[in-house]
Amino acid sequence: MASPHDLKRGVGLALEGDWDGAHAIAQQNESDPLFCWLHACLHKIEGDHGNSRYWYAKAGRRFEDFTKAEDELGAILASLT
Rank of each mutant, 00 (worst) to 15 (best):
Asp65Leu: 01
Glu30His: 04
Leu77Thr: 10
His23Val: 10
Asn29Trp: 00
Asp20Asn: 02
Cys36Ile: 06
Asp6Gly: 04
Gly47Phe: 03
Ser52Thr: 01
Ala2Gly: 07
Tyr56Ile: 11
Ser52Ile: 07
Glu16Arg: 07
Asn51Pro: 12
Leu38Arg: 02
His39Gly: 05
Phe35Gln: 14
His43Met: 00
Glu16Phe: 02
Asn51Ala: 08
His23Lys: 09
Ser3Arg: 10
Thr67Phe: 12
Ser52Glu: 05
Gly17Val: 11
Asp65Gly: 09
Phe35Leu: 10
Asp71Trp: 05
Asp71Leu: 06
Pro4Lys: 09
Ile76Phe: 08
Gly74Asp: 14
Met1Tyr: 03
Lys8Ile: 06
His49Pro: 05
Asn29Pro: 02
Asp20Cys: 00
Ala69Phe: 01
Arg62Ala: 15
Phe35Cys: 08
Trp55Pro: 11
Trp55Ala: 00
Glu70Met: 02
Asp65Phe: 09
Asn29Met: 01
Cys36Lys: 13
His39Glu: 06
Ala75Thr: 14
Pro33Glu: 12
Gly74Glu: 13
Leu38Pro: 00
Tyr54Asn: 10
Met1Asn: 00
Val11Leu: 03
Trp37Pro: 01
Leu34Ser: 02
His43Asp: 04
Leu34Pro: 02
Lys44Asn: 06
Gly50Leu: 06
Asp32Gly: 05
Leu38Met: 02
Ser52Pro: 04
His5Val: 10
Gly21Pro: 13
Asp65Asn: 08
Ala14Val: 03
Cys41Ser: 14
Gly47Cys: 09
Pro33Ala: 12
Ala22His: 05
Gly12Asp: 15
Glu30Gln: 07
Cys41Ala: 15
Asp71Thr: 08
Trp37Thr: 05
Glu70Phe: 03
Asp6Leu: 08
Asp20Ile: 00
Pro33Cys: 07
Ala59Tyr: 12
Val11Arg: 02
Leu80Thr: 01
Phe66Gln: 08
Gly10Glu: 01
Ser79Tyr: 13
